[in-house]
Computed example of a mutant assay.
Amino acid sequence: MSSWKWLPSFIFLVCLINLVSIVKSQFPTQIFFFYECQNNGNYTSNSPYKTNLDNLLSSVSTNINTNNGFYNKSIGENSDRVNLIALCRADLQPSQCRDYVKNATAEILKRCPNQKQAILWHEFCMVRYSNEAIFGTLANSPMKPAYSVENVTNTDVFYRELDVLLNSLHDHAAFNSLPKKFAAATRGVNDPKYPKIYAFEQCTPDITSVECGECLTKSAQQIRECCNGARGVRILRPSCYLRFETDPFYNETMVESPKRSMPPPAAQPAPQRDGRSSGSTYPHWNLGLFLFSLFNFIA
């Protein structure tokens, strides 16, 4: 009988893991991928700039536009003026947007406690503030790439189909999706292990359609430079966001298909090539999110 003493503990652990999964699915997952505290001056804890920044950040979640998930506002004068932009991923429900951006506005203060200029990319939103004017201005930097550590089976075949998909999304996001400026779609690939690509592109609504197209073009070009061969990539910029995966990651019920038709996928494979520059990596995405959420909850 002594050999079974561990059984109650094992059953409890299994039940706890299931409970954590259920509970965590009901609340926003606090995953923060990247942030940058930019070198554009500092503020002190009792300064007017700090007061203005706190007021701005606290107003985002309740005032963000539920039609396009975008918010911009400025408070203060001269050197104490704070300018802020926030953007939720376009496939979110309004309540989700408010919850996620609330998490992000709290986190950016922790990550950049006294910088006058900072940006944070959350899993589902972006928050950015500055002591310089940022609304209506295209910003391609800072740029942050991230890619999966897993490779596709045949890089040439997969990335050829990816190019077709991203070209279609590019036009729709930039010119045919006002006011949200986003597009998402899937495309089949002649790859036995990863037969489908899911891609998503979005720009901040304050830039022009031409500027949106320019930002997305730069991001698409960056994929080959940083992450060639990866089965999932994110290119993060202040003015636009590009991501593709081999697993579903966006809410397809909130997505309008691009109007530009795409040719059928190529049937014949080609020789493979692979090459990557520096960038941040991530494991299988859904598993990574789950494990982070589990440990974060238990802690």
Rank of each mutant, 00 (worst) to 15 (best):
R128A: 13
A184V: 12
Y159N: 03
R98V: 12
S177K: 04
W121Y: 12
H170L: 06
S95D: 07
V127A: 08
L87F: 02
I108R: 01
A184R: 04
N114M: 11
L169Y: 00
C97K: 10
E161T: 14
F182S: 00
V189G: 09
S130N: 06
P145Q: 01
A173C: 05
V149T: 14
P145S: 00
N167W: 15
K196G: 04
F182R: 06
D163A: 05
P142F: 13
A183N: 03
D163I: 00
A133T: 14
N154V: 10
E107D: 03
G188W: 14
N103D: 13
D163Y: 00
N154C: 03
T105N: 00
Y129N: 09
P205L: 08
Q93T: 11
Y194C: 11
Q202V: 04
N114E: 08
L178W: 04
T153C: 05
Y194W: 11
V157S: 06
D163K: 00
F124S: 01
A185Q: 15
A184P: 02
E132P: 14
L165I: 04
E123C: 07
S177W: 00
Q93L: 13
L138V: 15
V101I: 14
C97M: 03
S168I: 12
A174K: 01
K193G: 08
R128T: 14
Y159M: 11
Q202C: 01
E150A: 12
